[in-house]
Design a protein around this nucleic acid. Structure first.
Length: 673
RNA sequence: GCUGCUGUAGCUCAGUGGUAGAGCGCACCCUUGGUAAGGGUGAGGCCGGGAGUUCAAUCCUCCCCAGCAGCACCA
């Protein structure tokens, strides 16, 4: 007789099970309720099929829909399989490739048969219907171990060239598995899966879009059709998610930017922003705020040239790596052909010298540092610049304010000795923490490590990476997310590892904004040095850093985070004084004058319109405070304040109102206490 | 840059092989009304750009440009 398996459960109890039994059997042994609810299992911590037999003694935790993270992951992965099966069932000859779960659902990359157009949005309803049919058929999902050769033979026999290619690269020594859906369809998959398609809720998913995607993510490979879906455990969750998407769409900074008259974009300067008075007001407030923070933190602001000789960029290494994304201009007086009013067509001399518009500020800052002779006594030197840069981004990458071709960074470079690095990084971490908290953001910090293509010695990279870790360890960060420093191998810049700050906005999306990078490459390439205590020349370490990242992007994030309802200190118009009747015009003008004198950005609305109309219009314009005045207020020297987002009005004296607005309009760094 | 979709009034969008329409906004008139749309009148468009098919193109075809959704990229 074979020995029984000892299965330990989370409550500490141990059950003895026959060899060959499964987590499902354990659930059944515990009780019928659990047997029904259990959808998968964690066996020794690994998420597994409910019906996959134990291989020995094990620790078991049964997974039910209450373990939402696991349950969602399983369901989404299953939805992806059902999607692939549905597509092949409807359109024989379709090749399948790969289809994982995503943050909110799943996708599957497929290649339409040669005799058919790629799949489009119009195909989605049919595919959804077929998916529902497969779910309702409640097909068992059965795991089976295959050899690599079996897999290759199967895919080659069926003309699945992508799958075959993939199978050939699978490791020899690992257990390879397929999952059957019923008896007529299977996919190569590591699993785990639910026990059958019927465990999915047919009302809990929706196919959302189709898009192109490259085979294995490489743009040199064939392009496939990626079919996206969102998938959940039940219809309620799905609807909640669809509502969230609508919310996000309402917050879109491109839409709000137009509605609030902040900025616009147009073809003739695509990827560059036309800031309108109200939008630029936000910019100016941010810039003034950042200048105060940097001045106090010991930075000195500079301004460097927009155009530099291309040779300078060759020396820094940027030309070699990023030339195609840089704007170059010939350094010459153009000979304009005699075309009268015809199209502009200046000819460029073939021997022209080329200049490039700066895509970044670093080399120029090194050049400032290199002027004169620097002593170790002068270090650290912190050079800041509101640096306007241009990058010729791939056109498909442009996106409102978030990805533009012209942007301004709150940039600075800190030149310091080896010994000062950790301290300087720590100071920066704490500065960034203050700034993000002033805007009400929470954030995560990540460490991007050395990329494959890089400059500099491994020794220097070891040092630079460790310095950043050390600085995080000793820093006081109050706004930090989960407290863990996530490391991202291969994601660093070609000259330095990066700490990255990822903000989380009001609806849970994350955005990378701030960074600090410990660079030993550029100082070397551009021959920057200081004189040490020993009288010898030494290389300084150069820390690249930014907190907003770019003004454009940061403003875009702020707009979406606050859904346009910016804090009073940032609001382009902080208050509007609106009259109910024209008899109150003089009093309204007096109120506006007093508010202006108190430094409030205020406008008056004396138009011959009903108060309802004015309330509606200024609410849409996201003006924080509407000060309503009629005959009553004019007589009593009061205002009726209606605050954005509130239904009730508050009546107070004009002086009280001014004091309140003044307090709210004070930037966070200038508030007392 | 790649795939798909889109481009008509300031904005949001209808529409047709015979050179266009709505709502909002804007201007003017009436209305002075107490907290999210008072009424009337009017102006406003080379239907993204170029080429082709056609007696005739905003509409069909091709090329370009830009935007959108992904992908790839992001110093």
């Amino acid at each position: 007789m074979t020995e029984l398996l000892k299965i330990s459960l989370p409550d500490g109890s141990v059950r003895e099970m026959e060899p060959g039994s499964t987590p499902g059997d354990v659930a059944a042994a515990i009780g019928p309720g659990l047997a029904k609810a259990a959808i998968a299992a964690r066996v020794d911590g690994e998420l597994r099929d409910i019906n996959r037999p134990f291989e020995g003694d094990a620790e078991l935790a049964l997974v039910t829909n209450r373990d939402e993270e696991d349950a969602l992951e399983l369901a989404r992965h299953d939805f992806a399989h059902v999607l692939a099966e549905a597509v092949q069932s409807l359109y024989p000859g379709t090749q399948i490739t790969f289809g994982p779960a995503t943050d909110d659902g799943f996708y599957y990359d497929v290649k339409a048969p040669a005799d058919r157009e790629p799949f489009s949005m119009d195909d989605l309803p049919d595919i959804e219907e077929e998916m529902r049919r497969i779910i309702k058929a409640d097909k068992p999902l059965r795991r089976e171990v295959w050899s690599r050769q079996q897999l290759i033979d199967k895919w080659e026999a069926e003309g699945e060239v992508f799958k075959a290619e993939w199978a050939k690269e699978l490791p020899e020594n690992e257990e390879l598995t397929v999952y059957w859906s019923g008896e007529d369809w299977l996919d190569m998959c590591r699993g785990p899966h639910l026990a059958s398609t019927g465990k999915l809720d047919p009302q809990a998913f929706k196919l959302t879009r189709v898009a192109g995607a490259y085979w294995r993510g490489d743009q040199n490979n064939p392009q496939l059709t990626r079919i996206y879906g969102t998938g959940w455990l039940n219809k309620k969750q799905l609807n909640a998610h669809l509502t969230r998407l609508e919310e996000a769409a309402k917050r879109d900074h491109r839409k709000l930017g137009r509605e609030m008259d902040l900025f616009h974009l147009q073809e003739e300067a695509h990827g560059s922003v036309f800031w309108h008075p109200k939008g630029y007001r936000i910019w100016r407030e941010l810039e003034a705020y950042m200048r105060r923070k940097m001045d106090k933190a010991g930075y000195r602001e500079i301004k460097t040239p927009q155009l530099m000789d291309v040779r300078q960029w060759e020396q820094s290494g940027h030309w070699g790596k990023y030339a195609e994304n840089m704007f170059a201009v010939p350094d010459m007086v153009p000979e304009v052909e005699e075309l009268g009013d015809g199209p502009a067509n200046p000819s460029v001399a073939t021997d022209a010298d080329w200049m490039a518009i700066k895509p970044m500020n670093c080399p120029a800052h090194v050049l400032v540092f290199k002027q004169g002779i620097t002593s170790y006594r002068d270090l650290p030197i912190r050079l800041g610049e509101m640096g306007c840069c241009h990058r010729n981004e791939p056109h498909g990458a442009l996106h409102g304010l978030m990805r533009v071709r012209q942007f301004t960074q709150d940039d600075a470079h800190i030149f310091c000795t080896e010994d000062q690095v950790v301290e300087e990084v720590k100071a920066f971490i704490e500065l960034a923490d203050q700034v993000y908290r002033d805007f009400g953001f929470t954030y995560d910090v990540k460490l991007a490590l050395r990329p494959e293509k890089r400059f500099g010695s491994d020794e220097d990279w070891d040092k630079a990476e460790q310095e950043l870790r050390d600085a995080v360890a000793v820093s006081d960060m109050q706004g930090e997310g989960d407290g863990k420093l996530e490391e991202l191998p291969g994601e660093g810049a070609f000259y330095a590892p990066k700490l990255e700050w990822h903000l989380t906005d009001a609806i849970g999306r994350t955005w990378q904004v701030g960074t600090i990078q410990g660079d030993r490459v550029l100082p070397d390439r551009l021959d920057a040095s200081y004189v040490g205590e020993d009288g010898e020349k030494h290389r300084p370490v150069m820390l690249h850093r930014a907190i907003f990242g770019s003004y454009e992007r940061f403003i875009g994030i702020l707009i979406e985070h606050f859904a346009g309802r910016l804090p009073v200190w940032l609001a382009p118009v902080q208050a509007v004084v609106a009259t109910i009747v024209s008899d109150a015009d003089d009093y309204a003008k007096e109120a506006v004058a007093k508010l202006e004198a108190a430094g409030i950005r205020v406008e008056s609305d004396l138009r011959n319109e009903k108060i309802n109309y004015k309330v509606r219009e200024h609410s849409h314009a996201k003006v924080p405070h509407l000060l309503v005045v009629g005959n009553r207020e004019a007589e009593e020297g009061t205002v009726a304040i209606r605050t954005l987002g509130e239904k009730e009005q508050r009546v107070m004296s004009l002086d009280e109102a001014i004091a309140m607005l003044k307090a709210e309009a004070t930037p966070p760094d200038l508030r007392e206490g």
